[in-house]
């Protein structure tokens, strides 16, 4: 079955086919269509939808539903995402699954409602207090808005940590053809730790408190080992990289524009390719290092260089080497043009 729908709506279809039990959310442009579609479709399919009083409430309702062993999703944009950091830290600390969709808009502060990718560090580096990580997936099409929402649920349950679908206003608002999933994903068994109001789960406790410092350290060490174990799920995609002299490194909507730029560059005699991380955490660092050997690199992003700086860190840490990574970017809600990427890539030769 196919549908011509908005990215924001595709998220809800992904969530429903992932078996999501409940949607909690607070309206915010440019993410509101997710709440609209969820308000229509969740109750119609016997799932729960609730508009929360604020994003702090949304994420704590997520905490409650997840603690009860149910699959919960919420969606928001920058200002709301900032409010959710408290709950994300608690969910990570208590090892609860759940999916948070961030349809990024320009900031800081109120900013505006146009696409930016400036919540990169917030998503990838934890964002709230304490040593924790979320799984972060970066879709680049309407199909992936649906598919990655499903994958986010699977990874979130597998690693018992929140998963963020990091998207932006352009992907949220645009429409493309979506091929719907064929069936609902198998339900993970969460009863071993959930507090589900049953005799079997009566003994369970969901908490992020370790009053004793050595126990808290042990918990942290265990969390870090868990995050390290996520690496096999790192995913990426390359386009025209085999013989490339310049590699455009980018995620999400930027990678769509870079794709066109790589084709344009090739038509103008520059062998360009695209390296696109699909998971921003775990990051496909090994693949990035291999792809960039002997090639010029250009980061393409809708933020100040947060992503480029992270690439430098990954290259240094994984490749044990320093490599220049140039930057072409926009901030403030302006999407870079193909021509700007082409010009920046040509400068590297």
């Amino acid at each position: 079955m196919t549908k011509f729908i908005k990215g924001n709506e595709a998220v809800v279809i992904g969530a429903l086919y992932a078996g999501a039990d409940v949607y909690f959310g607070y309206p915010i442009t440019p993410a509101s269509e997710i709440a609209h579609a969820a308000a229509d479709w969740f109750p119609a399919l016997g799932r729960e939808f609730l508009q929360a009083e604020c994003e702090t409430a949304s994420i704590n309702m997520m905490f409650g539903a997840a603690a009860a062993g149910k699959l919960a999703i919420t969606a928001t944009s920058g200002p709301g995402m900032s409010l959710m950091q408290e709950g994300l830290s608690y969910m990570a600390g208590a090892e609860l699954p759940g999916v948070i969709v961030n349809i990024m808009r320009a900031g800081p502060g109120l900013g505006n409602v146009y696409p930016e990718q400036a919540d990169y560090n917030q998503a990838v580096k934890g964002g709230g207090h304490g040593n924790y990580q979320c799984v972060v997936l970066a879709p680049a099409s309407i199909q992936e808005m649906c598919d990655f929402t499903q994958r986010a649920f699977a990874l979130s349950c597998k690693y018992r940590t929140p998963a963020i679908v990091l998207s932006d206003g352009l992907l949220g608002q645009m429409m493309e053809n979506l091929i719907l999933p064929q069936s609902i994903m198998p339900r993970p068994d969460l009863q071993a730790w959930a507090v589900a109001g049953t005799a079997e789960t009566r003994k369970n406790l969901v908490s992020s408190i370790f009053l004793n410092a050595p126990e808290q350290e042990l918990h942290n060490q265990r969390l870090q080992a868990k995050y390290d174990s996520m690496r096999p799920d790192a995913a990426h995609e390359t386009y025209l990289c085999e013989d490339a002299e310049v590699v455009l490194v980018c995620y999400g909507i930027s990678s769509r524009i870079a794709r066109t730029a790589a084709e344009t560059l090739r038509s103008e005699g520059v062998k360009a390719g695209v390296f696109r991380p699909i998971t921003l955490n775990p990051f496909p660092a090994e693949a990035l290092c291999k792809t960039l050997v002997g090639r010029k690199a250009l980061a393409v992003e809708l933020s100040c260089g947060q992503f480029r700086d992270d690439l430098l860190m990954h290259l240094a840490k994984e490749g044990k080497r320093y490599q220049e990574v140039a930057l072409v970017n926009h901030m403030g809600g302006i999407v870079m043009s193909v021509e700007e990427i082409v010009a920046a890539a040509k400068k590297l030769r």
Binding site: D21, V22, F24, E48, L50, A52, T56, A57, N60, M61, M62, F63, G64, A65, A66, A67, A68, K70, A72, E86, G87, Y90, A94, V195, A196, G197, T201, R202, N204, L205, V206, S207, S208, I209
Partner: peptide, 29 residues
């Protein structure tokens, strides 16, 4: 308390309890 227990963030017990009761209609929250 010898029952299921969930420890909420400061001030958030009502939001967390909302999350629980909305998905578990047969429980006593």
């Amino acid at each position: 308390w010898d029952c299921g227990n969930i420890s909420a963030a400061h001030g958030r017990a009502h939001a967390v309890a909302t999350g629980v009761n909305r998905v578990l209609h047969d429980s006593v929250v």
